[in-house]
Simulated scan of single mutants.
Amino acid sequence: MLRLLPKLCLFLIFAGRLAQACAGEVVLYSSNNVETVNQVVDQFTKENPDIKVSVVRAGTGALMQRIKAEAANPLGDIFWSGGLSTIGEFRDQFQPHESAQAAAIPPAYRGPNGLWLGTNVHVTVLMANLRQTPGGQPPGGWADLADPKWKGKIVIPDPERSSASFVALYGLQKLLGNEVLAKVARNAVIVGTTSAAYEGVAKGEFAVVVTMEYAAYEYVAGGLKEIKLVYPAEGTFLSPEGMALIKGAKHPQEARRLYEFLAAGKTQIEVFKSAYRRPLRTDIDVSRLAELPALSSIKVVALDDARMGTERAAFIAQWRQSVNAR
């Protein structure tokens, strides 16, 4: 038996190295925050110990440009997640995949021939700090923000830097016109980042911010009773996000396994519980998981993503003019 030990040890070392050499790998490009990405990757590797996940994090725009620049020699395998309008602009860089989970996603959020798949949606809301609002009352809708009583009390992220702010203000213009938009611009304080805006309201520096549902709800869930989410009476706007497989990826099989994991209901429920990213799956009712309304009960104003993209530069120029005219 003792004579066999060296051979057994050599065999185990060889088997371990062979298993390591045969282990799969997948490179994930993601614009999600560190906590959300780490949570998902940890769970995936627990369920798929034969696959190593490497993560590259950056903004959606930067990652799209990187994927395009690497087209001849892709270094990433899968992108998760960014605005569907942005993914659509770079559709030539992605590989179709007919997901087993696709049936749970409304057709409007699926790419042609499975080119991308919607994962979650940001709902535009007004986040109000009732300790700072006039009379302790939040605004009821977009038109209220044009009232002079809100001057200096509204904070809005720069729409040139914040895609969520751009969607909200572009939608506001389409819904109520240039005059109301200009009045809102005159009342608002403009800041450089989305986080600086909603953090300013949470700290009581401002009364109201135009922001995303998940960011505002974190404070409600955290116990700040003075924070209230307002879904504007005139209607609000959606910013759907999704994922896609990178064309010519070096690890296509592993990428498809990660894709299916990210699309699965249990994964999206866990992401919602930790980060309040509202799933697009029709079989998940977030009103049963948190004190948020079901998506079907929210008045939504549809926006044309393609038109919004082509009109972006002109809108930003107009917004700048309105802000400078104050």
Rank of each mutant, 00 (worst) to 15 (best):
L8P: 01
C9K: 14
F11W: 07
A15T: 05
G16H: 06
G16N: 08
G16E: 04
R17W: 12
L18R: 13
Q20N: 12
A21K: 13
A23D: 10
A23I: 00
G24S: 05
G24A: 07
S31A: 15
N33P: 06
E35A: 14
Q43H: 15
R57K: 15
A58S: 15
A58C: 09
G59Y: 02
G59P: 10
L63H: 10
L63G: 05
Q65C: 03
Q65K: 15
Q65M: 08
R66E: 12
A72N: 13
N73I: 00
N73S: 11
I78N: 08
F79P: 06
S85A: 14
S85G: 09
G88R: 03
G88L: 00
R91P: 06
F94I: 01
Q95Y: 01
Q95C: 02
P96S: 06
H97R: 07
S99D: 13
A104R: 14
R110G: 02
G111P: 08
L115W: 01
L117S: 12
N120Q: 10
V121R: 11
L130F: 01
P138R: 12
P139F: 00
G141L: 02
L145K: 10
K149M: 13
W150Q: 08
I154S: 07
I156R: 05
A164C: 10
A168T: 14
L172A: 08
V184K: 08
S195T: 14
G200L: 09
G200I: 09
G204E: 10
A207P: 01
V208Q: 13
Y217W: 11
Y217L: 02
E218L: 13
Y219S: 10
G222I: 03
K225V: 07
V230S: 08
E234N: 01
G235W: 00
G235Q: 04
S239T: 13
A244L: 03
I246L: 11
Y259Q: 11
T267R: 03
I269N: 09
K273R: 15
R277N: 15
L280W: 00
R281H: 05
I284R: 11
S287I: 05
R288T: 09
A290N: 04
E291Q: 13
P293N: 11
S296I: 02
S296M: 03
V300I: 15
D304L: 06
D304W: 00
A306H: 12
R307C: 04
T310P: 01
R312V: 01
A317P: 08
Q318L: 05
W319H: 01
Q321E: 14
S322M: 15
V323T: 06
A325I: 05
R326C: 13
